[in-house]
Amino acid sequence: MDVFMKGLSKAKEGVVAAAEKTKQGVAEAAGKTKEGVLYVGSKTKEGVVHGVATVAEKTKEQVTNVGGAVVTGVTAVAQKTVEGAGSIAAATGFVKKDQLGKNEEGAPQEGILEDMPVDPDNEAYEMPSEEGYQDYEPEA
């Protein structure tokens, strides 16, 4: 019985440690998101679009440190934060509304985080759909 109880105690310690790591990862992701939003706020009209992409990228980098179902929630929060940063930029006159959601080359930025393969159960990952990809044929 002692062996059984000791095993359960060790398992509990492992769960607590994993929860603490997840909590730490979420806190880091939130900190990076805040950094990115402050970065966007300090940019001029020309830099705002690039700044919004930076927020998304920093958040995406930190999301990889967070495991399990938390990833889905962090990704949703990050996307809403990026959308909010863009709205703030438009409201303050840093950028025109028609410039939001495009990178410096004018290509749409939507789907940055949505296409990231995420499995809350950590069982399997699927690649994003290939609808947006084109076949590449090298020139002879």
Rank of each mutant, 00 (worst) to 15 (best):
G93N: 05
Q62A: 09
K60F: 08
V15C: 04
I112C: 06
A140E: 06
N103D: 13
G51R: 11
K45M: 15
Q62P: 02
Q134M: 12
K21I: 08
H50L: 12
Q134I: 09
E110N: 11
Q24S: 09
A124W: 11
Y39T: 03
V77H: 01
V82E: 02
T81R: 03
G31Y: 11
V95T: 09
K58S: 06
F4E: 00
A30T: 06
P128I: 12
G68D: 15
V37C: 09
Q109T: 11
K6A: 07
P108W: 07
T64F: 14
K32H: 09
K6Q: 02
K34D: 00
G47N: 10
K34W: 15
K6Y: 02
I112R: 05
E126R: 08
P108D: 15
E126L: 07
Q134A: 07
G93L: 12
P120C: 06
A30F: 15
K6E: 02
D115G: 15
A124R: 12
G106F: 12
Y133S: 03
V63P: 01
T54H: 12
A69W: 10
K80Y: 08
K10F: 05
V66C: 04
E130Y: 09
A53F: 13
Q99D: 15
A85C: 13
S87Q: 15
K34E: 00
L38V: 08
G14N: 06
A29C: 10
A17F: 14
Q24A: 13
A124I: 02
G106A: 12
A76Y: 15
A29R: 02
L38G: 02
V40E: 00
Y133Q: 09
V26H: 00
I112A: 03
Y133N: 09
P138V: 08
A11E: 00
S87E: 12
A89S: 05
T44F: 15
T75N: 07
E20Y: 14
M127H: 08
T59G: 06
M127P: 04
V77D: 02
T22C: 09
T72M: 14
V74N: 01
E137M: 06
V66R: 04
P128S: 05
N103G: 05
A53H: 10
M127R: 05
G36T: 15
E137F: 10
P117D: 08
Q62T: 08
V48E: 00
A69I: 07
L100K: 06
N122S: 08
E126D: 11
I112V: 13
Q99W: 13
E105Y: 13
K80V: 12
A124N: 04
T44D: 00
E123H: 10
F4Q: 00
V40A: 05
A29P: 00
K97P: 10
V15S: 00
G47R: 13
A17P: 00
A78P: 02
K97W: 14
P128H: 04
K6H: 03
V16L: 11
N122W: 06
V118R: 07
D121A: 10
V37A: 05
G14S: 09
F94H: 04
G47Q: 14
E61M: 06
V49S: 07
V63C: 05
P117N: 05
V74M: 15
T22V: 11
I112T: 06
V55P: 00
T33L: 09
A124Q: 07
G86V: 14
T22I: 15
K10Y: 04
V70A: 03
A11I: 15
Y39N: 03
N103Q: 10
E137C: 07
E46F: 14
A107L: 10
T72L: 10
A11F: 12
P120Q: 13
L113K: 09
V3Y: 02
A29H: 03
E104G: 13
V48Q: 00
M1A: 00
E123Q: 11
V26N: 00
T33Q: 00
E139C: 03
T59I: 03
P138Y: 08
M5I: 00
Q99I: 12
T59E: 00
T59C: 10
K21S: 09
E83A: 12
A19Q: 01
Q79E: 03
V55S: 01
V82H: 05
G84P: 02
E46D: 14
G25V: 12
P120K: 06
D121L: 09
Y136K: 12
A90I: 05
I88F: 02
K60H: 05
K96Y: 13
N103M: 13
A19T: 02
A29Y: 14
K10S: 04
V95M: 03
G31N: 11
A89M: 07
K21Q: 05
Y133T: 09
G132Q: 11
E35Q: 05
V40W: 02
G7N: 12
F94K: 05
E114F: 14
T59M: 02
K12Y: 15
G73D: 02
E61K: 10
S87N: 06
T75W: 14
K96W: 15
P120T: 08
A89E: 03
E57N: 10
Y39M: 09
V82P: 02
M5K: 12
V66S: 01
Y125H: 15
A91E: 04
D98R: 11
Q62C: 09
G47Y: 13
T54P: 01
P128W: 09
A56T: 09
T81C: 08
G67M: 12
K43E: 01
V70C: 05
A76H: 05
E13C: 04
L8N: 00
G14C: 12
P117F: 10
V66K: 02
E114N: 13
P120N: 06
K10R: 12
M1E: 00
V16S: 09
A107R: 06
D119K: 02
K21H: 04
V70W: 15
L100M: 05
E105C: 02
G73N: 07
M116E: 10
G36P: 01
G73V: 15
S42G: 06
P108L: 10
G36S: 11
A19H: 05
A91L: 12
V82S: 05
T92I: 04
E20N: 09
L113H: 07
G67N: 04
A140K: 10
S87A: 11
E57G: 03
I88D: 04
T75V: 15
G47W: 11
E105M: 11
D121M: 09
I112N: 11
S129G: 09
G68S: 03
D115K: 10
Q62H: 07
E46M: 12
E20F: 13
K10T: 07
F94N: 05
A107W: 10
V26W: 13
M5V: 08
E20V: 03
A27H: 07
F4D: 01
L113M: 07
T64W: 08
S9A: 04
V26M: 15
V48I: 12
S42H: 06
K32N: 02
G25H: 15
G86D: 04
T22W: 15
F4M: 03
F94W: 15
T81I: 06
V15W: 08
K23C: 06
G132N: 14
V74W: 12
A76G: 05
D2K: 02
T22H: 02
A17K: 11
L8A: 01
T75D: 03
L100D: 14
E35C: 14
T22G: 05
F94T: 06
D135H: 07
E130D: 07
A76I: 13
H50Y: 06
T64M: 06
P128C: 04
Q109C: 07
V15R: 00
A19I: 05
V71F: 06
K43Y: 12
T72V: 04
D115P: 03
P120Y: 05
V63A: 05
G14F: 15
V26A: 02
H50R: 14
G93I: 08
Q62Y: 06
A30S: 05
S42I: 12
Q109G: 03
E13D: 04
T72K: 07
G41Q: 07
G51K: 07
Q99R: 05
K34I: 05
G106L: 05
V63T: 02
G7F: 07
E61R: 06
K6S: 02
M1Y: 00
K58V: 10
V15I: 14
A27F: 12
Q62M: 06
D98T: 12
V37P: 00
A89W: 14
G7C: 15
E131G: 04
G93D: 06
L113Y: 12
